[in-house]
Nucleic acid binder design. Structure first.
Lengths: 194, 194
DNA sequence: TTATCTTCTTAACATTTATCAATGGAAAGT
DNA sequence: ACTTTCCATTGATAAATGTTAAGAAGATAA
């Protein structure tokens, strides 16, 4: 039979090409598949995040709640890793939640297993480093956009960079992601469509 | 004579306690001290960032220029590393600059030396991973603050978290760091002082 | 010292964005 | 099919923030 983790192997090899078969087998022993129904959580705020989760199928959202309002931080599509990484790293309760906008299938890698991989197969340190570096670059660019661009410009960038996401994510979630109210996003859209 | 790099050794050992004497000697061979006069640059936008730089003395600012205006991203005090890390990692021209708000002394570690350390002494992979993880956590929190808090609340947080910085950094730089105009920051300060 | 330059503050006014309220339409449940 | 809920849109109004301009306070240089 084929290996259930082919997609995830590709992901790892893409980041660290010199991973050996032995390395990947050690990885496989740590992975487990989980089904998350729509509306349920991959991670819930208040709990310590136990996994980094590779998204096989579905659409997930990273967000937090502040003064009664949900603020979306990011959206996850298949082929990407997601986690409340700060909680995962620090072992403190998560400030952010990750929920399922559709039914999901994820492949979990647990904290203790990951530490063991780091120790036993140091080549995974390089993997962890590159993941964190990618996250840094993503946040750095997002930060820059939030400070320098107007909401309208941020929306234009999203149209250019993530057109598929705009179709899949409700607009009130996009609005908080862009830092405006749903009403204001609606006006921006009206203005742009002319 | 004492080792010129004592402070930086402490920094490394704090992140990766099991670094050996051999590891640190290999590191020392890669480090070089640089003096940066006030107003000059550690990294200049448009050039590829060649170093991660440990700040020994002085105060530095990370910022970029957009539509003629400088927007500050962060400030660096002694004992911290700084770099235009996205450029350093990707080998593409830097979008951001780092300049000296006072005379500086930095300890540089070059890109090629760092890659060689990663390869020859894999234990440094762990160091690189933890640096990137720290950067991620910092940016994640800053991002959250930018989206969830009002400028006034962000300023209150700065008073609580970084009181020393408020004394050292001109207010018009703080203003862009907080995402408001200098005039508006002045109004916020007036309101709070009552 | 005086002069110059920079930074900070203040005020009036303009623009952007949020809030509140109402409506219509789409989706989901029964 | 009917009902209910949720979501997107729109308008009126309010609040927050930016812009422009001027002057005060502080630093730097001659």
């Amino acid at each position: 039979m084929g290996n259930m983790f082919e997609a995830i192997h590709g992901y790892y090899l893409n980041l660290v090409p010199h991973l050996s078969v032995t390395d990947l087998e050690a990885l496989d022993a740590c992975l487990s598949v989980r089904q998350v129904p729509k509306g349920e959580f991959i991670v819930k705020a208040g709990q310590v995040c136990q996994y980094v989760s590779f998204l096989n199928k579905g659409l997930a959202r990273l967000y937090y709640t502040f003064e009664g309002k949900d603020i979306s931080i990011g959206f996850v599509v298949p082929g990407q890793y997601t986690s409340e990484y700060e909680s995962f790293l620090t072992r403190r309760p998560a400030a952010q939640s990750i929920d399922a906008l559709t039914d999901l299938e994820v492949i979990d890698l647990g904290y203790n297993d990951m530490q063991r991989l780091y120790k036993t197969f140091p080549v995974f340190q390089e993997f962890g480093r590159k993941i964190a570096e990618m996250l840094f670059i993503y946040l750095n660019q997002r930060n820059t956009a939030l400070l320098a661009l107007t909401p309208e410009d941020r929306y234009r960038h999203m149209i250019a960079d993530q057109p598929a996401l705009l179709q899949q994510v409700p607009q009130y979630m996009l609005a908080s992601f862009m830092g405006v109210t749903p009403e204001h996003l609606s006006r921006i859209r009206k203005k742009i469509s002319r």
